[in-house]
Design a protein around this nucleic acid. Structure first.
Length: 927
RNA sequence: GCCCGAGUGGUGGAAUUGGUAGACACGUUGGACUUAAAAUCCAAUGGCUAUUGCAGCCGUGCCGGUUCGAGUCCGGCCUCGGGUACCA
């Protein structure tokens, strides 16, 4: 046999698809569209490993399927090609990042082609292409030129805002803004250009401000919170510190409510929605203003539990709070200053590691707004300046942190919610009864919240308030390999560049690292940053998030140079019907993509507000590392087969990663291993009784440093792309994480060989006949079609594979080679094993690619059995089987069941209390 | 701590709305073909009891509940994975 020559077949069809431009989508069409998208990769120098294509295979299958179903399909691929690794490589080697990136991209494309992915060649894009980032800059300018009207929940041109300022000042404007002072029209008219610019900056959606940033000295740049893991940079693992810097920021908080409420209508997993809503972190409560004893100033706090105000016994400010200096008494000054300095020097990491509450008394007191009691004001770093107002009313009887603090510093505790008799714990459930609280006594806490807010409102010292956890995002990076910011400064005023000046391209520079004086790399550019009018171009570039926040809207019309995309074309294709990618982008990329899409919607540039209707998170494929056990004795390395080492002895051995390709079935190929250049000096091997050397497997991240990466191209060489595609799907549900192992790959490969033999005999002849199919054969066919069609629709690709296998086995058993059966089978299988099916499709006599064929519909009539074999349960246990006609009604089935001899024996003459017949399923008799 | 998700044979995993748990595959064992091996094909394969024949009992992390019937639903725990955190 061996006639299934997958290497030849796959090469042939890959070039056929390319030459015939089989996968170019119609930009506009009357046909329904289907847009499936993978999160585009960063083209790293390491290439793809078998974990990457999992999601790509899934989208490839569903789009091929949809195409057969008559949809106009878009399935593009691109590259998130701005980024740190290429830049760091450039710093080391002097090679331009564009060069490295281009090389990596072509390697990725080669690998992807080898897997049979059909990407639309007209839609391929890279975020670092000038004709792409032109539009990234264009959107940034739009953000700069707009403000967010909270009253209308919509972004509006900044000119509209100026018109209002000129007429009536800012008092009546409800906006997402960092502007705190109220001014009148006269005030506004009295300001100069710089004054206007400064105020407008507080309203712009892209704005420039001083911000406490995460500065990474090793990378010479600022990082977003999402780019930091455990106090270190996500890429590279360098330490990160806090620093005040002037930065571009995007006012994503303006969209917080829309980003939150729209989640309800998205077909995303619960955990994904959960992460997003938690990230936005909306909490409702009240702001309460306190007078400060002896000082002309007030403290405003945010609380979600105004009902516990009577339990408030002290105040806590963040150490960075503005008022700290004002209220600190001379006696306390030294201690407070020391604490502020100490707290400021603590890194993020220290604060996370250390949860003990520390603080110092300022000496000042606030006046309780209801009781008039003097409340001591403390500072403590468990109150953070960035959330709420940076100050809290401490209610130790209700809040764990306040409780701990009060206990530590011996502060008063007043119980305000009934119950909770544990003397060592705070207690304040929202359904508890309020006590010790004057007018609130006896109320349920959640009602008391409203009552208290009303009261505070009457007194003019408090109001309802909503606070968000989400922060505006810092949009400046002090890097080279990113989109330049199309803004220039003159006399301290930021001016947007004219759209005709876009793209603002990256200048050539001699070195890619920051300048000696700590300026961003772009400061090294000659004849670039200075403008004829004396302005200076901003030296920051945008973060990696920029290019990926809108790329899905570029694909449908990726070559357009008049607009980021033609309005009609984006509206036809958007939203993305299926977006597949990893969970790691839950709060980063996905949040900013939704934000930019909403913004462009407000601009009237696109119709949709939400870009991704359905989101699926593919599980990571982990590597399976192989470890050998080694002990060094008298300078000799002793390698011992793992099954010869008891658990107790295991600790004496070091575990050494070995290249996974040298291990088959947990057995190390010793001859190969001995060739390994890493194996130096004297060594010996201790094998088991069979003379084999066993390794220890361990599932961990697929990484070159663990010698556990598997190149998909290697698998394609050994088994073929079709086998790999089927196998990756067969491994388990798309969403599930799973370790890579090739143990089962022969199973799917055998299936393909078996299926091949249905068409071609050992003499390489086509043996397909035009005979009429029998009902039994048609039954297997239609069972397969039905199952696969339903499972593809619900993205259960894993269970499609067994359906194919059963078909091939049964049809093979029936020695059936009939066109009527095999031709539809090819169409059903083709999304999974496209090369295989194209080849046989051609062999049995079709000129056009199978992709221009149609998906066969299943015919119910072949699936209907004439009789149904019912299991009969008696008191829940299956005791007998009966046959009943498929169209028999419940009563008839019941009659047959009760008449059955075995059933009667089990009934022992007793009459049933109840008989339950589930049509087509089961009969249950209750005695 | 809090919020999600998951726990099923030796292994990966099926079981879509509660209806014969273990599909399909790997592995293992036995057999056919072969001088032999590979390849291919066939059979068995959750556990226990019985195996002369039918068969019976137990079984989806643990405990309890709802139901004629629970892997699936509810309550409480345990373990693992992911997210998140002085968020007031």
């Amino acid at each position: 046999m061996g006639s299934y020559d997958f290497q030849k077949i796959e090469k042939k069809w890959q070039s056929y698809w390319k030459e015939n431009r089989t996968f170019v989508a119609e930009k506009l069409s009357d046909k329904p569209k289907y847009y499936a998208l993978d999160m585009f990769p960063y083209p790293s120098g390491k290439g793809l490993h078998v974990g990457h294509p999992l999601g790509y295979i899934a989208t490839d299958i569903i789009t091929r399927f949809k195409r057969l179903k008559g949809f106009n399909v878009l399935h593009p691929m691109g590259f998130d090609s701005f980024g740190l690794p290429a830049e760091q490589y450039a710093i080391r080697t002097g090679i331009h990042p564009a060069e490295t990136t281009a090389k990596n991209i072509s390697r990725y494309l080669e690998q992807m082609e080898a897997l049979g992915f059909h990407y639309d060649p007209d839609a391929v894009l890279s975020t670092s292409d000038e004709d792409y980032y032109k539009w990234t800059q264009w959107i940034f300018l739009k953000l700069f030129k707009h403000w967010y009207n909270k009253a209308e929940e919509k972004a509006q041109p900044i000119e509209d805002l100026i018109a209002i300022f000129e007429k009536e000042g800012n008092a009546n404007i409800v906006a997402a803004t960092s502007q705190k002072e109220i001014f009148s029209a006269d005030d506004w008219m009295g300001l100069d250009e710089k004054g206007h610019a400064d105020i407008l900056m507080n309203y712009r959606l892209a704005y420039n401000a001083y911000a406490n940033v995460n500065w990474c000295p090793a990378l010479g740049t600022v990082l977003a919170n999402e780019e930091i893991k455990d106090g270190k940079s996500e890429r590279g693992g360098h330490p990160v510190e806090r620093k005040q810097m002037r930065q571009w920021m995007l006012r994503i908080t303006a969209y917080a409510d829309r980003l939150l409420y729209n989640l309800d209508n998205l077909d995303w997993s619960d955990s994904m929605k959960n992460m997003q809503s938690h990230w936005i972190g909306r909490s409702e409560g009240a702001n309460i203003t306190y007078d400060v004893d002896g000082v002309e100033d007030t403290i405003t706090v945010f609380t979600t539990r105004p009902d516990t105000l009577y339990g408030n016994t002290f105040m806590v400010l963040a150490p960075e709070h503005d008022l700290v200096a004002k209220i600190t008494t001379p006696e306390q000054q030294k201690e407070v200053e020391e604490y502020v300095t100490w707290a400021g020097s603590r890194s993020e990491k220290d604060r996370i590691a250390d949860t003990t509450k520390t603080g110092v008394f300022t000496g000042g007191h606030a006046i309780h707004p209801l009781t008039g009691k003097k409340l001591p004001i403390w500072i403590a770093d468990y109150v953070v300046i960035t959330y709420g107002t940076g100050a809290i009313m401490a209610v130790p009887s209700g809040d764990q942190r306040d409780w701990d603090f009060a206990k530590k510093y011996d502060l008063e505790i007043v119980k305000v919610v009934e119950g909770g008799d544990d003397a060592d714990a705070p207690y304040q459930p929202k359904d508890g009864i309020i006590i010790n609280s004057e007018f609130l006594n006896g109320m349920v806490a959640k009602d008391a919240i409203g009552a208290m807010i009303d009261k505070l409102g009457e007194m003019g010292i408090g109001d309802k308030e909503v606070t968000y956890r989400q922060r505006d995002v810092i949009w400046s990076r002090q890097r080279y390999w990113g989109e330049p910011t199309p803004i220039y400064f003159k006399d301290g005023i930021a001016y947007p560049m004219d759209e005709s000046e876009l793209p603002l391209t990256l200048p050539e520079i001699d070195q890619y690292k920051p300048s000696e004086s700590g300026e961003p790399p772009l400061s090294r550019a000659k004849n670039w940053k200075e403008r004829p009018d004396g302005g200076l171009v901003d030296l920051n570039t945008m973060p990696g998030l920029a290019g990926s926040s809108w790329y899905f809207m570029r694909y449908p019309d990726a070559k357009n140079d008049e607009a980021f995309a033609d309005r009609k074309i984006v509206d036809y294709w958007m939203p993305v019907d299926l977006y597949v990618g990893g969970t790691e982008h839950a709060v980063g990329h996905l949040m900013y993509s939704r934000f930019w899409t909403m913004f462009l919607h407000d601009m009237g540039e696109v119709s949709v507000e939400e870009p991704f209707t359905k989101l699926v998170n593919q599980g990571k494929i982990q590597g399976t590392s192989q470890l050998v056990l080694r002990k060094v004795e008298d300078g000799v390395q002793k390698f011992v087969s793992a099954d010869m080492v008891s658990d107790a002895e295991r600790a004496d051995y070091a575990e050494i990663h070995v290249e996974v390709s040298m291990v088959q079935a947990q057995t190390l190929d010793l001859e190969e291993f001995k060739k390994d250049p890493m194996l130096e000096g004297k060594y010996e091997f201790i094998t088991n009784a069979e003379g084999e050397f066993k390794t220890v497997p361990r599932a961990e991240k697929m990484s070159k440093s663990y010698y556990n990466t598997v190149d998909p191209v290697d698998i394609c060489r050994d088994y073929g792309a079709d086998t790999l595609r089927l196998y990756e799907m067969f491994l388990g549900p798309l969403e599930m994480a799973k370790p890579w192992n090739t143990d089962g790959i022969t199973g799917v490969h055998t299936f393909l060989k078996r299926a091949f033999n249905l068409f071609i005999n050992e003499q390489e002849e086509v043996i397909v006949t035009d005979e009429k199919a029998t009902d039994e054969e048609l039954k297997y066919l239609h069972q397969c079609i039905k199952k696969v069609e339903e499972d593809i629709e619900r993205l259960a690709f894993n269970t499609c594979v067994p359906a194919f296998m059963v078909f091939a086995k049964e049809i093979g058993r029936l020695k059936c080679h009939k066109r009527e059966i095999l031709e539809p089978f090819l169409r059903v299988l083709s999304p999974f094993a496209p090369h295989f099916c194209e080849e046989l499709w051609e062999k049995i006599g079709y000129k056009e690619s199978i992709l221009f064929s149609t998906y066969p519909t299943f015919e119910e009539k072949y699936l209907v059995e004439s009789t149904i074999n019912y299991p009969v349960q008696i008191n829940g246990k299956v005791r007998a089987k009966i046959d009943a006609a498929a169209d028999a009604d419940k009563a008839a089935v019941e009659e047959i069941a009760l008449g059955n001899e075995t059933v009667q024996q089990w009934l022992e003459g007793k009459s049933p209390k109840k008989v339950i017949v589930v049509p087509g399923r089961i009969v249950n008799i209750v005695v």
